[in-house]
């Protein structure tokens, strides 16, 4: 479905990603984890076509550099971490923009389902009641939900989500991951999420890529990658012990 090979990203002299490969197949949920500065968001940026890179990324066998923007957006939906608002669009205006790639042609009338899909995405993310709210009046978490709704409204086959649970309260985090898991059940779909929280990564992911300072530290099925031993090497601390200690606070 999506195959990245030997990816390399450099900012001047600094190498941010080095020789990273990734193959995503239908039904899989890949989690990209690692400490701060490991290159997780850069990798999401490469796959989202916003970060220049060396190497190749192919979608269904075709180099993504050769796929027109609209065609790519119909297949791949990306949620980034930057959601600052300058102008006061309404929630439904921003969510409705997710239909851009499906609304082609001179008069943009090729998307008869646009309004319905927008309503669905708003309902799915619990924003139906807030559809007329001004973006400038929303909290960070509400804004995050708006852009999540936009990605769902886009109706892609692959979701690339960079820290999707950022700013979200616990009930909505739980709801979100359950939602993505249900979304993934439709055949032909796949998910890639960048996560710094290792517990949901372990619970929901099927495959993991553990990055350390731009390099691959471990890659494979989640149960093989996210182990106390590999995490200790990459994070330089007893991650498992820390999590257990935190848990004891609730006894």
């Amino acid at each position: 479905m999506l195959k990245a090979e030997h990816l390399m990203v450099r900012y001047g002299e600094r190498t941010v990603l080095e020789d990273i490969s990734l193959e995503v197949n239908p039904g899989e949920w890949h989690v990209i984890v690692g400490p701060n500065g490991a290159g997780k968001s850069t990798l999401a940026g490469v796959l989202g076509k916003t970060v220049p890179y060396e190497g190749t990324v192919r979608l269904e066998g075709k180099d993504i550099r050769e796929i027109p923007a609209q065609e790519y957006a119909r297949k791949v939906g990306v949620l980034s971490q930057n959601h600052s608002a300058v102008y006061g669009f309404t929630v439904e205006e921003v969510v409705g923009l997710g239909r851009y790639a499906r609304n082609t042609g001179f008069l943009h009338r090729s998307d008869p389902d646009g309004a319905e899909k927008t309503d669905e995405a708003l309902a799915l993310t619990g924003l139906a009641e807030m559809r007329k709210r001004n973006m400038l009046t929303l909290s960070g978490g509400e804004r995050q939900r708006v852009f999540l709704a936009q990605v769902f409204c886009q109706d892609p086959e692959i979701l690339i989500l960079d820290e999707p649970a950022n700013h979200l309260d616990l009930p909505f985090q739980q709801e979100l991951f359950t939602l993505i898991r249900a979304w993934l059940k439709t055949p032909g779909r796949a998910v890639i999420t960048v996560m710094h929280d290792l517990s949901p990564a372990r619970k929901y992911g099927s495959h993991a890529l553990l990055l350390d300072r731009g390099k691959r530290a471990a890659q494979g099925e989640v149960s093989e990658v996210l182990t106390p031993k590999t995490l200790q090497v990459v994070y330089g601390m007893d991650v498992y012990g820390w999590m257990r200690e935190m848990l004891t606070q609730w006894k």
């Binding site: 989202g48 916003t50 119909r74 939906g77 949620l79 921003v94 997710g98 790639a101």
Partner: peptide, 10 residues
């Protein structure tokens, strides 16, 4: 809304 977001929606 945002240039990066514009890239993502196509």
């Amino acid at each position: 809304v945002g240039e990066e977001n514009a890239v993502h929606i196509g």
